Amino acid sequence: MTYTGDVSQGGPADVRELNDITIGKLEVGGFGNNAYLLRCKETGDGLLIDAAAEPDRLLEWIGDAPISKIVTTHRHRDHWLALADVHRATGATVVAHPLDAPHLPTPAGLEVEHGDRVTLGVLTLEVIHLRGHTPGSIALLYQDGHLFTGDSLFPGGVGNTERDPARFAQLFGDVKERIFDRLPDSAWVYPGHGKDTTLGAERASLPEWEARGW
Rank of each mutant, 00 (worst) to 15 (best):
T4D: 08
G10K: 11
V15N: 00
N19Q: 13
G24R: 12
G24V: 01
K25F: 06
E27C: 09
F31L: 12
N34Y: 03
A35H: 02
L37I: 02
L38F: 15
K41A: 08
G46S: 01
G46T: 04
L47T: 05
L47Y: 07
A52L: 10
A52W: 11
A53N: 11
P55R: 05
P55M: 08
D56C: 00
D56R: 05
I62P: 00
P66V: 12
W80Q: 11
W80C: 14
H97L: 11
P98K: 12
L99T: 01
L99M: 10
D100M: 04
L104K: 05
P105D: 09
P105T: 14
P107F: 13
P107V: 12
L110V: 02
V118Q: 01
G121I: 12
G121E: 08
E126I: 07
V127I: 15
L130N: 03
G132L: 10
H133G: 03
T134L: 04
I138K: 01
L140M: 14
L141K: 03
Y142I: 05
L147G: 02
F148S: 03
V158Q: 06
G159M: 07
E162Q: 14
A166R: 12
R167A: 12
G173S: 04
V175L: 07
D181C: 02
L183M: 04
P184G: 11
P191A: 06
P191S: 05
H193R: 14
D196C: 14
D196M: 06
T197E: 04
T198P: 02
L199R: 03
R203C: 11
A204C: 03
A204S: 15
E208D: 15
E208P: 00
W209N: 05
G213T: 08
W214T: 10
